[in-house]
Amino acid sequence: MHRKCLPVLLITTLGLSVGSLFGAVTLPSWHGQPNTTSQVFQFTTGSTTPGPNSSSNPYGTATGVVDQGAVGNGWEDPNAQFSNPGHDGDGSWDVGLGSDGSLRFNVPVAPGTLAPGQSYRIDIMIFAHVFVSLAQPPVPSVDGLAPGDLVLENQGVLSTYGMTGATWQYRTWTGTLEDYESGAITVALTPPNGAVSAIDRVEIYTQYTLVPEPTAPILTLIPLAAWCLRRRRR
Rank of each mutant, 00 (worst) to 15 (best):
M1Y: 10
M1Q: 08
T12N: 13
G15A: 04
L16I: 09
V18Y: 09
S20F: 04
L21I: 04
L27R: 10
L27A: 15
W30K: 01
G32E: 04
Q33H: 07
P34D: 02
F43R: 05
N53H: 06
N53L: 04
S54L: 03
S55I: 13
N57S: 04
A70F: 13
V71T: 15
E76F: 06
N79E: 08
A80H: 10
S92G: 04
W93S: 02
D94Y: 11
L97I: 08
L97R: 11
G98N: 13
S102C: 01
V107G: 00
V107D: 01
G112Q: 14
S119A: 15
Y120A: 12
I124P: 05
M125Y: 12
F127K: 08
F127C: 05
F127S: 15
A128R: 14
V130D: 08
V132K: 13
S133Y: 14
S133K: 11
S133G: 15
A135Q: 15
A135N: 10
P137V: 08
P140N: 01
S141F: 06
P147A: 00
G148H: 12
V157P: 02
M163N: 12
Y180G: 02
E181R: 15
T190V: 15
N193K: 11
V196W: 03
A198K: 01
V202H: 08
E203P: 06
Y205S: 03
Y205M: 03
T206I: 01
V211A: 04
P212W: 01
E213V: 04
A216N: 02
I218W: 00
I218H: 00
I218L: 00
T220Q: 09
I222A: 01
P223I: 05
A226S: 11
A226L: 13
A226F: 07
L229S: 13
L229G: 12
R231S: 08
R233S: 02
R234L: 01
